[in-house]
Measured scan of single mutants.
Amino acid sequence: TTYYDVLGVKPNATQEELKKAYRKLALKYHPDKNPNEGEKFKQISQAYEVLSDAKKRELYDKGGE
């Protein structure tokens, strides 16, 4: 599973699309609303952290993490 899959976006997604997808999923899986989905929330946050940063995203796209 790639970070793009976690957020449900395509690899060519814009920053705005990433932000929108992250917010939607973060609300859905937030531990306050969904106590059993803490791990999913962490995955979503990690994916967004990497993909929202241009340098980290470039490194990730080249095969790094």
Rank of each mutant, 00 (worst) to 15 (best):
T1C: 15
T1Q: 14
T2F: 09
T2D: 10
T2A: 07
Y3I: 04
Y3M: 05
Y4I: 01
D5I: 06
D5Y: 05
V6Q: 05
L7G: 00
G8T: 03
G8K: 05
G8E: 07
G8Q: 07
G8S: 04
V9L: 07
V9G: 00
P11E: 08
P11F: 12
P11L: 06
N12W: 14
N12E: 09
N12T: 15
N12G: 08
A13C: 14
A13Y: 04
A13D: 03
A13Q: 01
A13P: 02
Q15M: 14
Q15W: 11
K20A: 15
A21K: 04
A21H: 04
R23K: 13
R23P: 00
R23F: 14
R23E: 15
K24N: 11
K24P: 02
L25M: 06
L27F: 11
L27E: 15
Y29F: 09
P31T: 07
P31K: 06
D32Y: 07
D32I: 10
D32R: 10
N34Q: 07
N34V: 06
N34Y: 09
P35E: 08
P35R: 08
N36D: 13
E37T: 12
G38R: 14
G38A: 15
G38I: 15
E39V: 08
E39Q: 09
K40R: 13
K40V: 09
K40T: 07
K40P: 04
F41V: 03
F41A: 03
K42P: 03
K42M: 09
I44S: 01
I44N: 00
I44W: 02
I44K: 01
S45G: 06
S45C: 14
Q46D: 12
Q46L: 14
A47N: 00
Y48E: 01
Y48K: 01
E49Y: 13
E49N: 09
V50K: 04
V50C: 08
V50A: 05
L51D: 00
L51N: 00
L51I: 03
L51H: 00
S52A: 08
S52L: 06
S52D: 02
S52W: 04
S52G: 10
D53F: 03
D53K: 04
A54T: 11
K55E: 09
K56L: 14
K56A: 11
K56N: 07
E58M: 08
Y60P: 02
D61C: 04
D61F: 02
K62I: 08
G63Q: 14
G63L: 14
G64Y: 15
G64R: 15
G64K: 10
